[in-house]
């Protein structure tokens, strides 16, 4: 990595860290139980929302009721998105006359957006009407992110309350997440993106003449759409000159802002953030990349503020950075090193004034290698899933890093809210392991960690791992799963492993290379996404309820300090060891074997 690469990485981390405290403190105010200047300022709108929705602000919930409200609310949203896709041909704001989406793709997309995964088996501009994009996916981008924040705040209350039966109100937390956090930030970012050239309109797609007409060879088809064959059984082809191009438009900026801030990641266009109308300039790229980690990072500070010790929040953030920054640098190094086979062919892969150097396959020349690898690692560390480069085209080791970041459980920043509660599950496991080492009952933030919390935390940590490996195993054994693979051998296995890791950790990014818009993949990935989201949230809410009911234990000489560098290393180690132990065999069959075969084939 040269000085320019380090400068870009450093600038990103510095700006991100500079925003953590102000935004984190702001969110702590938004979720405070006590009236404050923020809730007074927005109180009128908040009360109006409660009145029209029939919400009683002071009516708190136990963890069971909170969980049920969360589940029912999200399943209703899921059904609404399913219905919108199936009926979009009859609904307004469909200037391209998009037909109904197929049932299996509607199922997959509805679950995907309700679970904050935003895996996309379809191409947005060729499948969905403006109404479906806005009312279906755009709304779910807000609500799924707000759900994650609500669950994490309820968990924090579990730590702060003593001998309490309730952990807050799901409806109040949802309202405040949306009203005070997601809406204002999204509005500001959407306007900034429009200033950079991101489209935001309702006009039909525009056909424009190409600057340079291009000629293609296409198969001749009969009236029924079947390929015409000659007397020898060969397909008949003809030359066709393309002179125009259809430019897709639509209300993109408003959706892209929340897609990044809410760690949703579902692209308005099929090429996602590699599309010039989603991400036109290096500045829009920086803003969007910042938005990906902004709320998950700031929530760490919010957590510290709410538990009355900001050092606890900084500790979680430090553990996240301890894993992210080296992996970001390693991914950049792997891509800048390029393809070893090219060296033997005497192809110059070094960076110079005339070329980016390294492996530029699948990357935008507007962004180059560093912005592509930083995005790839940020989007997979967070459960965002948007891409500005094609991960399938990364070098095997460069592609391994985003995949492994997903497999670590989406706790290195993770999803909005879900990253914090996932990391707190690991913190519970870490203090338990530390307690075992010294033979004391583990404590975290003044609460004893007992068998029930450990059972729930273990489930939260292990469910996504199980879904990913079992799903991959089914797909590589089933003919329908194998039919979707575009590449044979280790690389094809990587494509399937990535898809199931992404769905089972609610990330949503695609490695690419597999044809996932089939009933097999749509159904199986949909099931993985659902179970990776709601049972985990319920497990964390159960921990919240259990902790809230406990008494505060005074700190003693035997209490493990959880705000020290030692705990940062312990926490990061637990995350890495669990991720490595679970996925190393699968990674050996995929990207590691792929890398070794690339190196050996070059000699």
């Amino acid at each position: 990595m040269n000085a320019n690469s380090w400068a870009q990485l450093g600038l990103y981390v510095v700006v991100l860290l500079a925003l953590v405290k102000p935004l984190g403190a702001y969110m702590a105010l938004a979720f405070s139980d006590q009236p404050n200047r923020l809730t007074k300022f927005g109180g009128g709108i908040e009360r109006f929302v409660y009145r029209i929705c029939g919400i009683h602000r002071d009516e708190e919930m136990g963890w069971q009721r909170y969980s049920l409200a969360m589940l029912v609310f999200n399943v209703v949203g899921l059904l609404a998105v399913y219905a919108l896709q199936r009926t979009q041909q009859w609904l307004p704001l469909n200037p391209q006359h998009m037909p109904a989406v197929t049932p299996d793709s509607s199922f997959n997309t509805a679950i995907s957006f309700a679970t904050n995964t935003n895996w996309q088996g379809y191409g947005g501009e060729s499948t969905l009407s403006y109404l479906t994009q806005m009312l279906g996916l755009g709304v779910q981008n807000f609500l799924s992110a707000a759900t994650g924040i609500a669950v994490s705040i309820a968990l924090v209350r579990g730590f702060t309350r003593h001998t309490a039966k309730t952990i807050g109100s799901f409806w109040v937390d949802m309202t405040r997440s949306t009203l005070y956090v997601l809406l204002p930030l999204s509005l500001g970012l959407a306007l900034a993106l429009v200033s950079q050239g991101v489209v935001q309109d309702f006009s039909p797609y525009k056909d424009v003449p190409l600057l340079q007409p291009t000629t293609i060879t296409e198969a001749v088809k009969d009236a029924a759409g079947n390929a015409v064959k000659d007397a020898h059984g060969k397909e008949v082809t003809r030359q066709k000159t393309i002179t125009t191009q259809s430019l897709p438009l639509g209300p993109a900026a408003s959706q892209i802002a929340i897609k990044q801030l809410g760690t949703n990641g579902g692209g308005y266009f099929n090429a996602n953030s590699a599309h010039p109308y989603e991400n036109p300039t290096p500045f829009s790229n920086f803003l969007e990349m910042l938005a990906i980690l902004l709320i998950p990072a700031a929530l760490c500070y919010t957590f510290g503020r709410m538990v009355g010790d900001t050092r606890q929040g900084w500790t979680l953030l430090a553990a996240m950075l301890l894993i992210l920054v080296p992996l970001m640098a390693a991914c950049t190094l792997a891509e800048q090193a390029g393809n070893p086979n090219f060296t033997h062919l005497r192809i110059d892969q070094s960076a110079s004034a005339l070329q980016a150097g390294g492996n530029m396959e699948g990357k935008e020349t507007r962004f180059g290698i560093v912005d592509s690898t930083m995005w790839a690692t940020a989007t997979t560390a967070a459960s965002n899933g948007s891409v500005n480069a094609m991960h399938d085209s990364f070098t095997p080791l460069g592609g391994l890093i985003p995949m492994w970041l997903i497999q670590l459980g989406e706790v290195i920043f993770g999803g909005v809210g879900s990253g914090l509660y996932g990391m707190l599950a690991f913190a519970v496991v870490a203090v338990f392991i530390a307690g075992l080492m010294v033979g004391r009952t583990p404590e975290y933030l003044g609460k004893k960690i007992e068998a029930y919390e450990m059972k729930m935390a273990s489930l939260v940590v292990l469910i996504p791992c199980a879904l990913a490996v079992v799903g991959t195993a089914i797909a590589v054994m089933a003919p329908a799963g194998l039919a979707g693979m575009a590449n044979p051998g280790a690389h094809g296995f990587s494509e399937v492993l990535y898809a199931f890791s992404s769905a089972s950790n609610n990330n949503g990014s695609a490695f690419g290379g597999i044809s996932a818009n089939t009933s097999f993949y749509n159904s199986l990935l949909g099931i993985c996404m659902f179970f990776a989201r709601f049972p985990l949230a319920i497990g964390m809410l159960a921990i919240a309820g259990s902790l809230a009911a406990k008494k505060q234990v005074p700190e003693s000489a035997g209490t493990l300090p959880t705000h020290t560098p030692l705990f940062v290393v312990l926490l990061a180690t637990v995350v890495i060891v669990i991720g490595a132990l679970t996925f190393l065999p699968a990674l050996a069959l995929g990207p590691i074997a792929d890398s070794l075969s690339t190196v050996s084939s070059g000699h």
Partner: peptide, 30 residues
């Protein structure tokens, strides 16, 4: 096919409610 996928959504939701019930049972037992 709509019926199949709607039934699958219902089954997933019910399974999750079952998981919630199990978590509650374990909590009551401690």
């Amino acid at each position: 096919m709509d019926v199949v996928y709607l039934a699958l959504i219902a089954a997933l939701a019910l399974a999750t409610v079952g998981f919630l019930w199990l978590c509650e049972r374990v909590a009551d037992r401690k």
